[in-house]
Simulated scan of single mutants.
Amino acid sequence: MRKIRTCPSANPGCVCTNPTVGASSSVASPLIIPESTSADAAAQLLRQAILKTQKNVSFNIDQQTPHGHYIQAEVDGGFGRDVMEFLVKKDAGVVAYRCVATKVTFVYPFTTAIGDSRGQEQRVAAVAQELGWYAPDIRSSVDDVAT
């Protein structure tokens, strides 16, 4: 079974719709599938948007699961290859996702990981913009409530 996992704690810049407890920087909003778009069409449009907006795309997994249509793509990132995972959940009307770097660099002597800064977030934003699908900005909403 394929589900969108949380971001690893030692992977800065990871963006995902399945938040990690205590790591609000990884929280992202799911993409909203237009009502007139079927699940098959949504998956096809998503694949096309990934190909159009990312460099050197390799689709590793593209399959129907009990949870929805799961797509995993590997793309060129800031420090190597990055992984983009999407789960088209038409019954819920959303696409859940996770975008994570496969290589994390640690600066000696510190144990702080150096990540792709906002690269993962920008990568997902480019796909969403290409699709033209709405993604509510829950991070701003969380920040507004916290202040």
Rank of each mutant, 00 (worst) to 15 (best):
V21I: 15
P19H: 01
V83K: 01
R98S: 06
D91M: 09
C99K: 10
L46H: 10
F106N: 06
N56H: 13
I33D: 05
F59A: 06
I50A: 04
R47Q: 13
L131N: 10
N60W: 04
R47Y: 03
K3M: 12
Y97G: 00
Y134V: 14
G77N: 05
S140Q: 15
W133S: 01
H67T: 09
C99N: 15
L87W: 01
L131T: 09
K90R: 15
Q122P: 04
S140I: 12
C99M: 15
A28R: 08
L31Q: 05
L131Q: 08
P8G: 03
Q72G: 01
V95P: 06
F86V: 00
A135Y: 00
N11F: 04
R98T: 02
K89F: 03
T112Q: 14
V145Q: 12
D76W: 03
F79Q: 11
P8R: 03
S36L: 13
A41Y: 10
L51T: 13
T65D: 03
A28W: 05
A43Q: 09
T65Y: 01
T20E: 07
I32Y: 01
S26K: 05
L131V: 08
A41C: 10
A135D: 07
C99F: 13
G77Q: 08
M1G: 13
Q129T: 14
G13N: 02
R81W: 01
A126M: 09
R118Y: 10
K52Y: 12
G22Y: 02
I114E: 09
T17S: 08
N18S: 05
P12T: 03
V27Y: 10
V21K: 09
T105S: 09
P66Q: 07
T102S: 07
R5E: 15
Q64L: 13
